[in-house]
Design a binder for these strands. Structure first.
Lengths: 191, 191
DNA sequence: AAGATATTTCAACAATTACTGAAAATTCAG
DNA sequence: CTGAATTTTCAGTAATTGTTGAAATATCTT
């Protein structure tokens, strides 16, 4: 399997990007290749197309599986394992976000919470805790919001995004309504 | 300058996280230290606190400056350069997002656009272009939306986030209104 | 169960990235 | 302009991370 120049450019760029994001080049290239492939590929095909050793591909696929970014399947009458990337790009985006949350955000939040429990001994610690609290709240708010919004179906999500900053009109309307009824209405604040 | 255990834990965690994100450990630790510091620090103080060489700190600060994540200032009667992290965590978040966009997203979008201009020769290329178009559109939509929303002031942004998935109510209202007036209203779709 | 085919593991090696000390460059006070 | 204080550069080295082939393991077929 040889890659056309178009595909090759994409694969190389993606590999390069991957390495800037803490994902190694091989893994990035494998994923890019699967992403554009017309049909599922087996490890030997990938090794040949990308010029990596079979064992390197094996490790890369293991990594991608752990991120739930590739699907494993079998083709009738073929013993080899075939891999593919999910069709729906929004689903891919979701998976990526979920995994990153689980691996990076959650441990960070937990570390921050622990640090906030300690009794500050010095002025420096008191100040540091204030800063950690700000960071904690920002991360928590952002990720809670994100997981909330991600539950929307792709169509609604896209509508919302196309709206851009205009969503604020909703806030204005809400404020006006609340003002009109004496602001005793429900408040959705979580904190 | 020695760090209290609380601060040390945070600094080490942040350094570790940094290395998962393609930022090196030193840079992550420097930033963490500045983030919690009560007052601006000079390079020697950081070198001592973190146990890195003076030259390593110098390189790290250069990197952080290029990301616009630290401010350089001078203290009266002191020739040395002092550094600090911005106060406002939302501003930090914005800066980070802008820089990442400039360095990673924009080049990727440009590569995708180029690839989409080529005339597909084979069926494989035709399919690949379809996929690249999906990726392009997702990235473009997401980043346009993001930069739009980031223009909002911190207060509005937080209100919006606390709303979470409930923003969709806005869409429902909008749909109802449009329905009522025969759907000839303005459409904000960009594409 | 044997043999063929396919996949994974892992120790050795390669490549990349991080870090340092010494030297060079810059900045500032007198 | 001189020289002391400070910062930056950079070549060499250390540490980390990536890659491979060979061996081990697993899976299927007959």
């Amino acid at each position: 399997m040889l890659m056309s120049p178009l595909i090759q450019t994409f694969v190389l760029h993606f590999g390069e990007m991957g390495s800037r994001w803490g994902i190694n080049r091989t893994v990035g290239q494998i994923y890019a290749l699967l992403f554009v492939a017309e049909r599922p590929l087996n490890a030997d095909e990938m090794a040949e197309a990308l010029g990596f050793s079979r064992s390197n591909i094996s490790m890369g696929l293991k990594e991608l599986m752990s991120w739930r970014l590739v699907k494993l399947q079998h083709l009738p009458g073929d013993r080899r394992e075939y891999f593919s990337a999910p069709e729906d790009v929004w689903a891919i985006f979701r998976t990526l976000a979920e995994e990153r949350r689980k691996r990076e955000i959650d441990p960070t939040l937990s570390m921050l919470r622990d640090a906030l429990l300690a009794e500050p001994a010095t002025s420096a610690e008191k100040h540091a805790q204030g800063r950690l609290r700000e960071m904690h709240d920002l991360i928590e708010l952002t990720t809670d919001w994100f997981s909330d919004v991600q539950k929307l179906d792709s169509k609604t999500l896209m509508q919302l995004m196309k709206l851009g900053g205009k969503v604020t009109k909703f806030l204005e309307i809400k404020d006006k309504l609340l003002l009109g009824m004496g602001s005793k209405g429900e408040d959705d604040n979580k904190h």
